[in-house]
Amino acid sequence: MSRAWLIAAPLLLAGCATSSLVLMPDDEGHQGSVAVLEANGKPTEAVISEQSRTKLGDATPNSKPLGADGLKKDEAALLTNLPPPAKSFLLYFDQGTVNLVPSSAGVLANLRAEIASRSGPEVEVIGHTDTVGSAEDNDKLSVRRAEQVLEWLVSQGFDRSEMSAVGRGERDLKVATEDNTDNAANRRVEVIVR
């Protein structure tokens, strides 16, 4: 009985030892890497850092170039099904107000089109201020800016449950300045569409 188990065990291990990894550059062309931290329960320190296909499970992974054939049909289909990358929009405001600068009006139209084009969108609205005024007032102003954008999106027919709005006050300046500095680039709302 136990002897039969001893014979069967390596076969079972072999049966599940066929996981594989295909590593590719990201959409911007940067080649990242994947570390194999454990193989078959044992710690390893291997790092795969080239475009390659690797059979997983060995302590020293044997990576092969993707070669002329490149991706298999199933793999190419899988990549086609990846959601689009998150997209970020910046809207700018007049000093001390929730009024958009005129040049940001066109960005609103692009933002609306982007959300409408996505399936199951999530929209994160983050308000910011410059350093004019107190930190407390700027916290409030940044929230009002973010909520103003969110309310506009609601008025355009988007579901509130798709969206969130937060204010970061003067904590995350786009351009570092001294306190009480008027700066148009810092008076902004970032909208991330996923």
Partner: peptide, 23 residues
């Protein structure tokens, strides 16, 4: 290695990239 992927026989640490895991 803040992002990890586990397969039945391997633990991977992802260092910023695009990849496919097949099991």
């Amino acid at each position: 290695d803040a992002m990890k992927v586990r397969t039945p026989n391997t633990l991977l640490g992802v260092r910023g990239t695009k990849f496919i895991v097949e099991v």
